[in-house]
Amino acid sequence: MPVDQHQAGKILNVEDLHKSFGSLEVIKGVGFDMDYQERLVLMGPSGSGKSTLVRCLNWIEPPTSGRVTFDGVLVDPKSTDIRRLREDIGMVFQQFNVFPHLTALQNVALGPVVVKKGNRTAAEAEAMELLAKVGLSHRAAYKPGQMSGGEQQRVAIARALAMHPKLMLFDEPTSSIDIELIHEVLEVMVKLADEGMTMIVVTHEMGFAREVADRVIFMDQGLIIESGTPKELFDHPQQERTQSFLSKVLMA
């Protein structure tokens, strides 16, 4: 693996990020940073702003204010090519958002062909490899309507990986999946983590967080309440809000 020139630094630095929808402030000044190859899990009750936060990182929701530095470059919406930034940040959505008019293979190959202007044959060959990686070689010619939620989400992961992102964002990737199929998605994510992918995962899957996360950040009402290793945060939460949230999640 070639050593990136920023390898020693941070892949991501977020300072005082705010996001409002109209008069409603959803993120009220959030800051954190992230090492290359770090695995970060974001947790918090619904409405805590965790999904909005990850959606701000690739400008799907433009932040209202704050500073985001990605891969050594300060993101300035006036001068930064946001599309180029998005090529480097893969995103997996709660609702999969796979393209229903395309087969699994076409879903995965579309980004490289359209955005990177790659050769179609080469892109489809790589798409086949990525589908194999997420365990879906046998579904290459299927359309999303013919696949289970777990399979669609794995197609979505392969689609994001096809752009060779430096950072992967997972926004509640298993929340819309039938409970008996969640493990197939989590297994793929664990595999990615083992390969050294830098990732931010919004999830309530405690098992996944314990196994994979280097750090867990707990958010509530638009602010980071506390963060630490899974062991620290889950076994010895310092803040009352974290304790009460964890007790509810563990009850479920």
Partner: peptide, 12 residues
């Protein structure tokens, strides 16, 4: 979500 997914890949 469809256009968000397209944008997230870097599409115009």
């Amino acid at each position: 979500g469809q256009s968000e997914a397209a944008f997230s890949l870097g599409m115009s």
